[in-house]
Design a protein around this nucleic acid. Structure first.
Length: 873
RNA sequence: GCCGGGAUGGCGGAAUUGGUAGACGCACCGGACUCAAAAUCCGGCGGUAGCGAUAUCGUGGGGGUUCGAUUCCCCCUCCCGGCACCA
């Protein structure tokens, strides 16, 4: 045995050992409990960052732990390889996205291997390869056949200089990130997936996901957003204009507060609403306002935070129940994509309408009252919107009705008029999957002048993406590739054009977990092995994916089930949402709204004497940079920390141990390398202890009568088994930081108790056998080496998880805390089986307790068995 | 703005889910070893008062429930994640 811990040597040896045995290859073994453990696959951005190390270490710890628990474990890995950063890199470096991507994959794979993850690399997939995305195309066509894919227009960010559609991320302060040009909204035809057809099941099935965090289920439920309300219409008359004749029509709106209908004083429509367009024809001011709205962001977050503005259309509608005239306004806060793109406005009982009415001096009419509260238009009060205790007032025959009966009566009245009825509305919208970008899955359609949009026949799949394009930032380079675009129509054989839009990369990641079951299957999307492995038993990934990725994956699973491809209803039985790993963000604005980000490792922070931050400068040029606060480690913010230096300096085990010890996996973690030293020190200490004690191992020890062993030994053994009990319990809670702390307690206890006596040697042997197994999932290399050096068994990979000895935990005496009126006043030792009366007497006899009780009467004595005595005076 | 989450010593965090707040580490301070340093080992380490026993304050801020609140309830502040084209 080597005297010194040398991580690089033992890690190489352990990894060779596993590789030679093909130890992590997963086979479909009938009769054995399977455990499909999956960490979200990475985008190959270049190098791993600490968020990856955290994610994949958690997955590996759980995989190895379950292997020790006797499960047939599958842990695969792959690459979410299509996406925008590859195109950005291509523009910067003049290298095709494909080459950049494959280079990154090669480098990052090397890093994953160096970290010793128990991955079945035979199942590796990359979504940018035709043998994968072929099945994106195939499923797209099946969905098209079933009406689950359809075409309609959608709104995108348009850079008028580059003539290019921009991602939200590429719009900074309303300007294109490369050109600095003011971005416009533009409507273009796109393909949509009808996820709303599954809205009901996506919502109700959340109840079956007992292994998911409540917060994620809540977020999904709110996102799907089922709301019950009333859809109804305001009849209106639009006067004749130069362009169009006078028109009578119905303005449809949706509301969840039909009980406030008699408080309506105006209506508001989205700038994109057809009625707004019509009203703008004779009204240049309104047209200018609508044009201004067109220049605003497409992002909901921007829309919701911007100043609420509006303008009257001059068109009046008739209130369907009161017959009053109400004016129709255009409001920049009304979303065309939700409901009807129009709302009834009740300033008295809707906060947004209230502020809008105040701003434009529109009437405010109370129609709900709460007993004991008086209404005023001076300022908004939360009770104005209270539907629990409010009743209708100033509402004619609905006066006095509470929320539910009022909604029922009003819906019935509208229905009788043929002007509306109750309706369920979803916040969830269909999923627009078209991207006007090169580096993605080609949408398998052909546009023929005679036949229209024609699906590519299955036999012609995949539609292969040429891998040698270099995007230049203006438009989709596929449009310039005649060899890609020009084709013949599969129906009529005439010359035709291939669709050049590609699919949203969320499509790629919505079913990859199914493909891992059978990545080598060339003739089908999935085969019968997808009836063995799915669902994923444990999914692990960042909390930032709580809604979109997880919802799309659930949708895809249900679609694949309904196509008979898989048998599961849900893709992920248990979900662990890892907290973000944050780091400082530094940037400079380099003009035209463009931003350049600098890695914190290249930035010096200056502080004053009290440690307060004064500023930050870029080391390269000494000039100041701005702080962008804390944010997720990412390529786009250039604030990732490459784990490579950590691995090279300390080894994979230290990197893994440190990551697991730093915080519980679900917590946000602000990156700070301090503490790595401590993790490394612990492993060295364990190695040194094993080296010193190596003589205790190997020879047979007789059975030890622990009950007659010295107290100090019994105490040490109690500590070890208590720590084991805690560690086993904490594994179930995913609380790996306290598992690590338990192993530290074990080593502390062993170091104190070690010695040459037979019982001491037996304790060291038992303790190390437990310690190494508990630590094995976290630091697999050093534990593998020590397990063999100490001759504790053959291969630690398959050693069973240790069970604690309840007998070791029993103590003859226990300590009880004494309180007077809830304040700590001392403690006593009592026999473990002491009865209540004896405990009370001992407590009341305690000198410090007597001092604090004094001559006050004891009102009550609370005894919590095994914990404390509280004397209430 | 809306939805979800978080805040505990100088730092990361713990507290068997209502029962001794600060486990286990990091940093720091003192000591041993050393010519010296590093490494290692031993000890200390929330604030205030006290030589000490001990007292008192203390889990983002304010209020409440309880014999007892980091934990449960109400209000507020700040930070993080998501908001449909970053992945």
């Amino acid at each position: 045995m080597q005297e010194k811990y040398n991580p690089h040597v033992i890690e190489r040896e352990a990894q060779d050992h596993w590789a030679q045995r093909n130890a992590f290859r997963a086979l479909e073994t009938p009769g054995q409990k399977k455990y499909y453990c999956l960490s979200m696959f990475p985008y190959p951005s270049g190098k791993l960052h600490m968020g990856h190390v955290r994610n994949y270490t958690i997955g590996d710890v759980l995989s190895r732990y379950h292997r020790m628990r006797g499960y047939n474990v599958l842990q695969p890995m792959g690459w979410d390889a299509f996406g925008l950063p590859a195109e950005n890199a291509a523009m910067a470096n003049r290298v095709p996205p494909a080459q950049w991507t494959y280079d990154n994959i090669a480098y990052m794979k090397k890093q994953l291997v160096a970290l010793g993850f128990a991955i079945d690399w035979e199942r590796e997939i990359a979504t940018c390869k035709p043998d994968y995305y072929r099945w994106n195309q195939w499923l797209f066509l099946r969905m098209l056949e079933r009406g689950l894919v359809y075409k309609k227009t959608g709104v995108v960010n348009w850079d008028p200089v580059d003539q290019t559609v921009l991602a939200n991320e590429q719009v900074i302060d309303g300007r294109g990130w490369r050109t600095g040009a003011l971005v416009e909204k533009r409507e273009i035809p796109m393909y949509y997936m009808a996820i709303t057809k599954y809205a009901d099941e996506l919502l109700s099935a959340l109840d079956t996901l007992s292994g998911w965090p409540e917060r994620v289920k809540t977020m999904q439920a709110n996102w799907i957003g089922k709301s019950h309300g009333v859809r109804f219409a305001f009849p209106y008359e639009a006067p004749a204009t130069q362009g169009s004749a006078a028109e009578k029509g119905l303005l449809w709106v949706f509301t969840t507060r039909a009980d406030t209908i008699m408080g309506v004083t105006f209506c508001a429509i989205a700038p994109e609403h057809p009625l707004a367009t019509r009203a703008a024809q004779p009204n240049p001011q309104l047209a200018a306002f609508i044009a201004e709205c067109r220049r605003s962001s497409v992002m909901e977050a921007d829309l919701a935070t911007m100043e609420k503005k509006g303008m009257p259309t001059g068109i009046y509608a008739t209130h369907p129940l009161s017959g009053e005239k109400v004016e129709i306004w255009v409001g920049n806060y009304v979303l065309m994509s939700y409901g009807e793109g129009a709302v009834m406005a009740v300033p008295a009982h809707d906060e947004r309408d209230f502020h809008f009415a105040k701003r434009y001096d529109l009437p405010i009419k109370q129609s709900i009252a709460v007993a004991g509260q008086s209404f005023s238009t001076d300022g908004w009060q939360p009770w104005y919107a209270d539907k629990e205790t409010g009743t209708c007032v100033n509402s004619g025959k609905y006066d006095g009705l509470a929320y539910e009966p009022a909604v029922d009566a009003i819906a019935a009245a509208l229905k009788a008029l043929g002007l509306g009825e109750k309706q369920v509305l979803w916040r969830l919208r269909d999923w627009g999957i078209s991207r006007q970008r090169y580096w993605g899955t080609p949408i398998p359609l052909i546009h023929c002048g005679a036949c229209g949009d024609v699906p590519v026949p299955d036999a012609d799949l995949p539609v292969v993406l040429p891998e040698d394009c270099v995007p230049d930032g203006s438009g989709n380079p596929l449009n310039k590739r005649a060899d890609f675009v020009n084709c013949s129509c599969p129906k009529c054989g005439q010359p035709a054009k291939r669709e050049t839009d590609t699919m949203d990369t969320f499509v790629d990641s919505s079913w990859y977990f199914m493909r891992y079951a059978c990545p080598d299957q060339k003739n089908a999307m999935v085969d019968e092995r997808a009836h063995y492995w799915p669902p994923v038993d444990q999914y692990i990934g960042g909390i930032e994916h709580a809604i979109l990725h997880l919802l799309y994956s659930r949708f895809y699973t249900k679609v694949m089930r309904d196509l008979g491809l898989v048998k599961v209803d849900e893709p992920f039985s248990k979900l662990l949402t890892q907290g973000m790993v944050l780091n400082e963000i530094y940037f400079r604005k380099i003009g035209n709204g463009r931003i350049s980000y600098y890695n914190p490792a290249d930035v010096d922070v200056t502080v004053d004497e009290s440690g307060k931050r004064l500023g930050a400068t870029l080391r390269a040029d000494g000039a100041p940079v701005e702080s962008g606060g804390m944010g997720t480690m990412s390529k786009s913010k250039n604030n990732g920390v490459d784990p490579q230096a950590l691995i090279e300096d300390y080894g994979a085990d230290t990197a893994r141990l440190f990551m697991m010890f730093a915080s519980p996996p679900e917590d946000t973690l602000v990156w700070n390398g301090a503490g790595v030293e401590g993790a490394s020190r612990f492993l060295k200490r364990m190695w040194n202890f094993a080296y010193e004690q190596r003589a205790a191992f190997g020879d047979a020890n007789g059975p030890i009568d622990w009950a007659s062993a010295p107290d100090a030994l019994q105490q040490a053994r109690r500590e070890i088994h208590a720590a084991l009990k805690q560690a086993s319990h904490d594994f179930g809670k995913f609380q790996f930081n306290t598992v690590v702390s338990a192993t530290m307690k074990m080593l502390n206890a062993l170091e104190r108790a070690a010695g040459a006596q037979p019982a001491q040697r037996a304790l060291v042997l038992e303790g190390m056998s437990i310690l190494l197994r508990v630590l094995a999932p976290i630091t697999p290399h050093i534990t593998h080496a020590l397990w063999r050096e100490l001759k504790l068994g053959e291969d630690l990979l398959t050693a069973p998880w240790p069970e604690f000895d309840p007998g070791a935990l029993a103590a003859a005496e226990i300590e009880l805390v004494l309180q007077v009126n809830g304040k700590l006043r001392g403690n006593i030792r009592v026999a473990a089986d002491a009865d209540r009366a004896a405990i009370e007497k001992l407590a009341l006899d305690n000198a410090n307790v007597r001092k604090h009780v004094g001559d006050q009467a004891v009102k009550k004595v609370v005894v919590v068995p095994g914990r404390l005595v509280n004397i209430v005076v």
